[in-house]
Simulated scan of single mutants.
Amino acid sequence: MRVTILGTGAIAGAHAEAITGLADHGVDAVLAHAVDIDAARAEEFARKHGAAAHGTDLAGVLADTDVLHVCTPPGAHVVATVAALEAGVHVVVEKPATLSLAELDRIAEAEAGSAATFTQVVQHRFGHGLRQLRRLLDDGALGRPLVATCDTLWFRAPEYFEVPWRGRWDTEGGGPTMGHGIHQFDLLLAVLGPWSEVTAMAGRLARHVDTEDVSMAIVRFASGAMATITNSLLSPRETSSLRFDTEAATVELSHLYGYSDADWTFTPAQGRDDVGPLWQPDPAALPSGHLAQLVPTYRAFVAGEAPPVTVHDVRGTLELVAAIYRSAFTGAVVRAGEIGPGDPFHGSMRGTGPAWAPVKDLGAAPR
């Protein structure tokens, strides 16, 4: 598989290292091209990661590409993805895949007319602990999931937002709900399944941005389970944590940007010591990360099968993002399936807009 990486900023390095690591798992892939609007940066990236060629023109290398990894800022994802799919090239996109549900629906339409497939990076779905929890729930060994919490409590100093595309609806798509917490509540959905309704609030409390810097939501799932979600960029002690309370046990994950089996805690319910032995670490398992996702993804590409994360999976998570914003900005409960073409939150996560003023109307950043 000949691979092109589009966008050679920080996250592209994780993609390049994972592509190199595929060989250890029986997948034959080579980084053929590095493409960036900055020619010097593309050249430096190619030299560092062993890409055979580099340049600034994506269209010129698609004919020599089997898989395109899109690592640009989110605002550039949809055009590159659609172009690749129309050229019959598989696409792996960094999160968030698009700035809106409308853009994702455009990608789904392009994929439907292509021999190639699309997937988004949600690498935490592929850690051993998550896969083990999902299997135990599917087998009924832990009973029904009942209550969950999902917290992305991160810290981004004001300087972080000096990068021009950050903190803006038109280029980043949203704040921590869209660009940071999405990894954790994607895990929540991977465990609990489809969501049915959400009530939320959001605020711009401390950062000089157009988007929110914190949001909170209460979510009911189709199964009846209930969960809380917090997404913050204002939390000095950073942590990413999830807790699942089932009929038979509490299962907890505490990490920051990636986890191994050591980051999970399993606590049987009173009188349910029988379930304790069911939770077993796997020392040979890959930690959650890009390689853990790319191994089964590339195997699916080679076999002509759907990747383990489909556009349908991506849409369920992105629809929850849109619902959180819609509930936060309108004060209404939002139910799954309500946000479709014609809804302001289908075309933009900003939708009808938050109560606070755009940054350009605020003057100097608050101290």
Score class of each variant (00 low, 15 high):
residue 128 H to F: 08
residue 309 V to T: 13
residue 203 G to E: 14
residue 133 L to R: 01
residue 219 V to Y: 01
residue 33 H to P: 05
residue 168 R to K: 15
residue 15 H to F: 11
residue 26 G to Q: 14
residue 310 T to C: 08
residue 78 V to G: 01
residue 308 P to T: 05
residue 105 D to G: 08
residue 173 G to Q: 00
residue 181 G to Y: 07
residue 106 R to H: 08
residue 104 L to W: 07
residue 111 E to T: 06
residue 144 R to I: 00
residue 160 Y to A: 10
residue 241 S to C: 05
residue 301 F to M: 06
residue 305 E to R: 10
residue 3 V to W: 10
residue 168 R to F: 05
residue 127 G to S: 06
residue 179 G to V: 15
residue 248 A to F: 00
residue 365 A to N: 04
residue 77 H to M: 04
residue 44 E to S: 14
residue 356 W to T: 06
residue 159 E to L: 02
residue 13 G to C: 10
residue 270 Q to Y: 11
residue 10 A to R: 15
residue 170 D to N: 14
residue 239 T to C: 12
residue 66 D to S: 05
residue 72 T to I: 10
residue 106 R to L: 09
residue 316 G to M: 12
residue 79 V to Y: 07
residue 256 L to P: 02
residue 282 D to E: 12
residue 265 T to W: 13
residue 91 V to A: 06
residue 243 R to N: 01
residue 194 P to R: 12
residue 325 Y to T: 04
residue 108 A to G: 13
residue 314 V to Y: 02
residue 152 T to I: 01
residue 47 R to Y: 11
residue 160 Y to H: 13
residue 77 H to P: 03
residue 217 A to H: 03
residue 289 G to C: 11
residue 294 L to G: 07
residue 139 D to K: 05
residue 139 D to W: 03
residue 200 A to T: 13
residue 287 P to A: 10
residue 43 E to R: 15
residue 226 M to S: 13
residue 300 A to H: 03
residue 80 A to I: 07
residue 114 S to V: 01
residue 135 R to E: 11
residue 141 A to I: 03
residue 299 R to H: 08
residue 127 G to T: 11
residue 269 A to S: 12
residue 4 T to V: 06
residue 178 M to C: 15
residue 57 D to I: 06
residue 109 E to H: 09
residue 344 P to T: 11
residue 97 A to S: 12
residue 3 V to G: 09
residue 231 N to M: 00
residue 278 L to G: 05
residue 240 S to N: 14
residue 96 P to G: 03
residue 7 G to Y: 06
residue 242 L to M: 15
residue 50 G to S: 05
residue 184 Q to L: 15
residue 135 R to F: 05
residue 130 L to Y: 10
residue 10 A to Y: 15
residue 362 L to N: 10
residue 223 S to L: 02
residue 258 G to T: 08
residue 176 P to A: 05
residue 37 I to G: 12
residue 130 L to R: 08
residue 287 P to N: 08
residue 167 G to T: 02
residue 173 G to M: 01
residue 46 A to C: 11
residue 252 E to T: 10
residue 229 I to F: 03
residue 259 Y to H: 14
residue 62 L to V: 01
residue 283 P to G: 11
residue 97 A to R: 03
residue 86 E to T: 09
residue 99 L to Q: 04
residue 47 R to I: 14
residue 290 H to D: 09
residue 256 L to N: 13
residue 149 T to V: 00
residue 206 A to H: 07
residue 233 L to I: 13
residue 67 V to A: 02
